[in-house]
Design a protein around this nucleic acid. Structure first.
Lengths: 352, 352
DNA sequence: CCCGACAGGTTGATCGATAAAGTGAACGTT
DNA sequence: AACGTTCACTTTATCGATCAACCTGTCGGG
């Protein structure tokens, strides 16, 4: 039952010892006799004391045993995206070995607060929404920050997104594709797909939704690099979900100048496109090729060509980087691999 | 960059005002002039102060703005179980409306600590591992506890598991099934399926893994109630995953006395069974019927008969119960519905 | 016989912030 | 003119625990 007011002081008084001794019973067992320690615990149970309060301990010691997982956008979206779920699985697995827990944080502009006020020892930037403004300051406060995109200064675990783009580009180029549409997960703009051309530098035009994604730019660059003379269009697909993948797919497929290949910057989108293709009675890999990134389990299931990355392992390593300052490699580049499946095939002659 | 030692005191000194005023600037805007407030923020930015520290605030005010999500077993398992992922999606969605965040907690015996020391205002018991010993004491400390199983005293959001069992039982009985095997998610015992008969009371024998599940008992009771003269066997399927569903399914299917229907107490298990059935070249719903519970998205996808419950909504409501003491209904029973799909059909004549 | 090491405590300061009560000036009220 | 109010802050007292530093016997070695 435990009265709310039961604290170490209460215990100490009851036992006739100092508060420090009670504290030691919990956190420094070797500093008092085994016997007394037992007594402390016995009295604790009796009075309904349930261990040192998180707040007090955190304030004094400066540690919380909590690692934040930062997600850009509504947290509920994190759970509908298999990528983050897999990442979280790895992250929380790592946390268990540190007896720490994971705090889900939403990284929203303006919401400096929730982030700044989070009681965490470290933060892992889960979605590759690279640099949240508040992150910098957090780092100053002694919070370790771990990214999931390459950068010069910070700690990170990432893949070579440019290389990932190249893998797909090369593959499609060899299959003879010349007209390609890229689907980028956009901001939370409505379901309306929006279209653009790439700038002269091969990058997204400034202000185009999807820009913030971080990985988008690199993947596009890599792809362009290996398909220099292809006709590449870019369509923003609203939020990163199967649903918007489907509608963006529809938009692209119904266009009179249908591309021979559609590359989605994430598998969720690609899977949506896959459905749109099926709905139209077309066969992926024959009538139109589809490729994605991340190689989610479902990709293997339906036969979607995708660039594999070890997502759960990524989460695990991020966890170690976050909790263990002495972890040797502070910047980890994970291997990737193109999984060629049935969803990509030679470009149809009519559209070559 | 923000020196670690930048605190409200620093700000106050720099500005020549009291610490309280700085505090008010953040949490009680109407208690100081707009002008001064701006100044405070300006200086904060200048000195790299990133808002009130969570620890200090939590200690003094007794609130953390954090809701714990309690999972029985390794947290990483929570992410491989679509049920908990869907639940978490709802929970975190609700949290956003309270500007609170979710802390993932592992409810392990012996690990009283991690739970007791968690800086939370409330805890939602995510997996139906009903009553963690520490929960009681937490409640005493002023932490609101929300369950996902029916009980008399506490707040909860749940479904009528017994009724769920009845729905399945009735359905199977009408289809003429007389020999049924129940698959219960067991403890983390190895992959070895283990078998048992139901006790005379129609309950699991004491000590049988799966007992702790909470919902298992009720569902079994309901099922038995509607199939009084069926031959019901129970098999424990190791941990709650597709994998163990498959091996438990194999175990059951390869038995000489193969049942005409297999009921898994969770869809993940059922989906595993489904795969085992397919692997053997059998057709679910014709050669052997399969039914599950929870109606995960994949269930609809492959055509698995299952008892639907609004999982995400459950999480949402749990969140409201946790964060809003004035939420009207403190005990919420959600509707369920049997979704009949292709995986169940008339019992084959040979096995009737 | 003195010294140092060690086990097993104690004391007092402190972590960063908020709650509650107080202060003084300006203003309106009857 | 006396009095109640409001505004805009300040003062003081904690919240619960940990840390650094300091006692106090005891025991073995030189």
């Amino acid at each position: 039952m435990g009265n709310p007011a039961v604290t170490m002081k209460t215990l100490a008084q009851q036992l006739g010892v100092s508060v420090t001794t009670v504290s030691n019973a919990y956190s420094k067992p070797d500093r008092l006799s085994e016997e007394l320690r037992e007594q402390v615990f016995a009295t604790a149970k009796e009075l309904g004391y349930c261990g040192p309060s998180a707040a007090g301990r955190a304030l004094r010691s400066g540690k919380t045993g909590i690692c934040g997982f930062l997600f850009g956008g509504p947290l509920s979206a994190a759970f509908s995206d298999p990528y983050s779920v897999l990442f979280l699985a790895g992250l929380s697995e790592a946390m268990e070995s540190y007896e720490s827990s994971v705090l889900l944080l939403r990284a929203d502009a303006g919401d400096d607060d929730l982030l700044g006020r989070a009681p965490v020892d470290a933060v892992v930037s889960g979605s590759p929404t690279a640099a949240h403004p508040g992150l910098q300051r957090l780092a100053g406060r002694g919070v370790r920050v771990v990214g999931t995109m390459q950068s010069d200064d910070a700690d990170w675990v990432a893949i070579d997104d440019r290389e990932a783009g190249r893998l797909v580009g090369l593959h499609l180029a060899r299959l003879g594709h010349r007209r390609v549409t890229l689907l980028v997960p956009g901001a939370e703009s409505g379901p309306e797909p929006r279209e653009t051309d790439l700038g002269p530098d091969g990058l997204l035009p400034p202000g185009f939704p999807g820009l913030g994604c971080g990985f988008a730019e690199a993947r596009i660059l890599g792809l362009r690099e290996t398909m220099p003379d292809a006709d590449v269009r870019v369509v923003s697909a609203g939020h990163n979900g199967k649903q918007s993948g489907r509608s963006a797919g529809a938009y692209v497929l119904d266009d009179q100048l249908r591309p021979s290949a559609i590359v989605a910057l994430s598998d969720v989108l690609a899977l949506g496109v896959w459905e749109a293709v099926q709905q139209r009675g077309l066969t992926p890999g024959r009538d139109v090729s589809i490729a994605g990134f991340d190689d989610l389990p479902d990709a293997g299931f339906v036969g979607l060509t995708s660039v594999h990355q070890p997502i759960t392992e990524k989460g695990r390593i991020a966890g170690h980087l976050a909790m263990d300052p002495s972890y040797p490699k502070r910047q980890v580049l994970l291997p990737i691999e193109l999984k060629v499946r049935a969803s990509t095939g030679p470009a149809p002659l009519t559209t070559r």
